[in-house]
Each structure stands twice: as structure tokens, then as C-alpha cells.
Nucleic acid binder design. Structure first.
Length: 266
DNA sequence: AAGTGAAGCAACCGCGGCGTT
DNA sequence: CAACGCCGCGGTTGCTTCACT
């Protein structure tokens, strides 16, 4: 697969990479490290531009890059992360070791997005995730979004903590109209990590959190989800230990601790 | 078996952010 | 502080493979 090779006016090679080029690039980086992409191609004996080398290394040659089909767990994770982070593929890739942002982006654009559409799911708002709260009981929080009239949380609480986190984030901020404070609330919620079926405890704590969340009904309490807030949110996310906060739960059977959404059913 | 469209994948392009001068 | 250049990211394109008719 890939593209046919050709040469720029300045002699720079473009298009598909050959095995020989791959070997040269890998051998050079293994010996000298990456350094400056500008000069790397010439030093490595390649007629490529630095950008092309970087892309090839990150998406294909880098150690640990996972190739091949995405597992259902990975697909679920992509959908969930996408609902939280939007099309920030690099950020999503950070949560999925072994998968490059390009790989994830391609899979989303070529497969997952269409599959969601086929199932009548809005790829931007991920509305069915809200319905999912009904299908698979996970939390008992009214997200307080007056625009999300379909939210009808179940009284039970049985999914994993990370699933709950994703579920709550997905349902709560999918429209990206909510503020960082709200998200921080969710992420810092002690109920979030690896929750078991401790329904009573949840119900108890929900009383307090319910008060906080009740305020969410007032639109004025929301910070607008603008670029600045998104950047701050990303900073917060990046600094968090996902193992303890539940988004990435290595003890789970699935590395992404996702839950059955049924969104990918064909 | 051949034609055709869809799906999947690899790579390019353009832009914005950020560091340096 | 403005100008410049590089890097990284997201969108898009182009090619190959697969599935269906």
C-alpha cells in the first residue's frame, strides 16, 4: 500500500518508503538518537525531508508501535476518548500506548465514524452514550444539562470506576459546553476510581455531590468550553495519574477500562 | 472472471504554537 | 517585540486491497 515514489525539484524523495530506507532510518536513530529532524535524513543517508522521516518513525518504525487490527476494546476506548477530548488524536494516542495518533485518526475516519453514523449516532455529541446510561446502569447523577433531555440515569451503580468516569464525562461534557471546574469536579470525585458495586456509599456521597451538581442546572455556572479552557483541561488531564483516577486502569481486563457500549455493533 | 465501489492504510499538506534570534 | 524557522498536529489525499455484483 502507500504512494508511489517521486522526487521533488530539489531531489527530495517523496511517497512510499522502501525497506532499505526504513533500515537506514532505524539504524541511524538506534545509534545516534533522533536529534534534529532537519539534519537527520542527510546524516542517515536518506534523500527524505525531516518531516517525512519523523512521520515514518513515529507512525511505523518506532519501537512498540502496534500494527494490525484494532481490538474491540481499543475501538471502545477511541470512541470514549474522542467523546471527551474531541479530535485531539495526539492526546488520545497518549492514552493508548502502542498506537500512533495517525493510526487512531485513520481508524476513526475510515471506520468508527461511519459505524457510529450507521447506528444513528451523532459523531460529535455521541448521543447514544447518553442512552447507554439507560442500557447499562452506571451512575446516578443527573448531569444537569438541560439540553440533554435524554439523560435518564439509572439508580444502580455497577460499572467500573473508569467506565463510570468515561460515562459521566461523555454524558456530561459531550457537547463541550461545560467548564473546566465541572470536569475537575468529575475527575477529582473520590467515587470515580475503580468503584465497585458499593451502591450505598455512592448513594450517600451522592447527596453531597448532588448539591454541587444541582448548581449545574444554572447555565451561568458553566464556563464556556473555549480553547483556553480546553488547553487548561488538557494540562490537567496530562498531569493526572490515570491509574489512580480510573481512566486508565491497568488492573482491569481491558487496558482501557472501557465498557460495553454496543455502539460498535454491526 | 471482470468491473466497481467501499474500506483501509500510508503519507503529504497546511497551519498554529513555540522557541530562538 | 517582531520576524523567522522548526516541530507537531489535524485534515486530506492517493493508492491498494477487499468485497460484492
Amino acid at each position: 500500500m502507500g504512494r508511489a515514489t517521486w522526487f521533488d525539484a530539489d531531489g527530495t524523495k517523496r511517497g512510499g518508503w522502501t525497506d532499505e530506507e526504513d533500515q537506514k532510518l532505524v539504524a541511524y536513530i538506534n545509534e545516534y538518537g533522533i536529534g534534529d529532524w532537519r539534519f537527520l535524513p542527510r546524516k542517515a543517508g536518506l534523500q527524505r525531508c525531516g518531516k517525512s522521516c519523523r512521520l515514518r518513525w513515529l507512525n511505523y518504525l518506532r519501537p512498540g508501535v502496534k500494527k494490525g487490527k484494532f481490538t474491540p476494546e481499543e475501538e471502545e476506548a477511541i470512541i470514549n476518548f474522542q467523546s471527551i477530548l474531541g479530535n485531539r488524536w495526539a492526546a488520545i494516542a497518549q492514552q493508548m500506548p502502542g498506537r500512533s495518533d495517525n493510526d487512531i485518526k485513520n481508524h476513526w475516519n475510515s471506520c468508527l465514524k461511519k459505524r457510529l453514523e450507521r447506528n444513528g449516532i451523532d459523531q460529535m455529541t455521541h448521543q447514544p452514550i447518553i442512552n447507554l446510561a439507560v442500557k447499562i446502569p452506571s451512575f446516578n447523577i443527573d448531569c444537569g444539562n438541560s439540553s440533554s433531555s435524554t439523560v435518564s440515569p439509572s439508580p444502580s451503580f455497577s460499572s467500573s470506576g473508569s467506565a463510570s468516569l468515561l460515562n459521566r464525562l461523555a454524558t456530561g461534557i459531550s457537547s463541550r459546553e461545560h467548564g473546566v471546574d465541572r470536569i475537575k469536579n468529575i475527575l477529582s470525585d473520590p467515587r470515580t476510581p475503580i468503584i465497585t458495586s458499593q451502591e450505598e456509599e455512592f448513594e450517600e456521597s451522592n447527596k453531597d455531590h448532588g448539591k454541587a451538581l444541582a448548581g449545574d442546572d444554572q447555565e451561568d455556572d458553566f464556563l464556556m468550553w473555549d480553547e483556553e479552557n480546553m488547553r487548561r483541561f488538557m494540562d490537567e488531564i496530562g498531569q493526572m495519574d490515570f491509574e489512580t483516577n480510573g481512566v486508565y486502569n491497568s488492573s482491569s481486563s481491558s487496558p482501557y477500562s472501557v465498557y460495553e457500549t454496543g455502539l460498535l455493533d454491526d
